[in-house]
Computed example of a mutant assay.
Amino acid sequence: MVQPCARCGARWAVQGAPMHWCPRCRGVLLSPGKVDAPAAQRNYRWVARRPDHRTRKAAATTSAPLGPTPHYTQTPRWGLLDPPPAPARTRERPLRGIAAHRDRLLVGTTIVFLLAGLAEYGRYLILLQNRARLIPGWLLSISDATVLVFGVIAPIYALVTAVSLAAWLIEARTIVFTAYGRRDPRRRWSLIAGCLVPGVNLIWPGVFLTELLGADPDPRSWRAVRIWWAAWVFSGLLLIAATLWRDASTLQAEADGVSFTGFTNLCAAGFAILTLWMVRTLEGRDLRGDIRSAHRWVMAADPAQVVIAPVEPGAVAVREDAGHDEAERADAVRTGENTQEEVVAK
């Protein structure tokens, strides 16, 4: 049994325990094996090498003289390009663009209906003055023009605002139901019809907003929706009454109709402000658009230690002060006597 060396190829006879290192070159010795073992049973294989492989290896490992340290003659202009990630593109929905102008349309509706109401009341004052004196033609022309212009612009503006609010309602319901992992159970066309078709739009907008609040609504949002719903029904009744009043046959009834139309326009302006307040309340904001701060109530508890001493009657306090002074005086006298005795003893 011999152990071949893996480095120099020498074979060493095994005498006792197998060795690990070659005594000649300190190479690793392979496991013991028979000298005449066939190639299939050997645990090693012979590799043919050139006779001068040791000298060639030594020549190859000879280190060449080091040259100058590589360096750049100028700042390199190449490098890895790491641009910031592009923002994810969201699919634009047509209703989102219309709903984005909701607040501006509500403010514009308020201004237009306020001017329309002032124009109607200006016409009513002209009618009052016309009972006793003639009205100049230019003043009457200005009154007719303002009543006509704002009487046409105000309904158109209100219709565009209603479309924007319906688009906002659809978008808000989509966001809320998506957050719950659900899909809006109502079709888009049913939401639009329930908000814009006259007559049925007095009932369904309040239902849609109630569904938007969820099963556990915020008390402030729920109160805002109820107030808005009641005001919406009231404004619809005022519109019906103003439309029917225009068919009056007497002059006094027509004059009262002008006054009532002005009152209806002012109510419409106030309702637009109320709608803006309701929408922003549902979004967690106030009427000005600022984020509504939450008020938290904390249970108050008595301090662990008494900070302020309890107030005692005057007579008790005087007696305690007198007793305290007498005790101090007695301590002073006793201390003086002790001092005098110590002096005498010295």
Rank of each mutant, 00 (worst) to 15 (best):
R319T: 10
T243V: 08
A99W: 08
I135F: 06
G97W: 12
W277R: 15
G97M: 08
L95M: 11
C25W: 11
L251T: 07
A193V: 07
P76V: 08
L29S: 03
R173F: 09
L213P: 01
E283D: 15
E341A: 14
V258Q: 08
S259H: 02
D218P: 02
T174M: 05
Q340S: 09
L115D: 01
P185C: 03
A300R: 15
L237Q: 01
R50W: 04
L148G: 09
A317K: 14
G314Y: 06
P68A: 15
R334D: 10
E342W: 07
S141H: 06
S31P: 11
W228S: 01
P32Q: 09
L276Y: 01
A330G: 01
G79M: 10
A48R: 14
A86E: 14
V2G: 06
L237E: 00
V147M: 07
L196H: 04
I135N: 04
A231N: 06
G151S: 07
Y72K: 02
Q74P: 00
W21R: 11
W229E: 03
E312Q: 14
L212H: 13
E171S: 08
A39D: 12
P85N: 04
K34H: 10
D290V: 00
L213K: 02
W78Y: 14
A119S: 12
G97L: 13
G236I: 02
H53F: 08
R292Y: 01
L105Y: 02
T174N: 12
V112F: 14
I142K: 01
L66S: 12
A119I: 06
F150P: 02
L238G: 02
E341P: 00
I170S: 04
T61E: 15
A116Q: 07
W228R: 02
A13F: 05
D290N: 14
S190Q: 06
A17M: 09
T243A: 14
T161K: 00
F113I: 00
P310I: 05
P32W: 05
V176A: 15
W46N: 03
V14P: 07
P310M: 04
E326A: 13
G33L: 11
P136H: 05
D247M: 05
A327I: 11
W222A: 13
R102N: 08
W138E: 13
A255K: 04
R11I: 00
F150Y: 13
A48I: 04
G33N: 08
H295F: 05
R187Y: 01
M278F: 09
F271Y: 09
L165V: 12
L274H: 13
A99H: 07
A40W: 13
W245F: 07
A145S: 12
H20E: 15
E171K: 01
L125A: 15
A255E: 13
T264C: 02
F263V: 07
A88K: 10
G257M: 02
G323L: 09
L29T: 10
R42P: 07
R45T: 08
G194W: 03
I291W: 05
L202P: 01
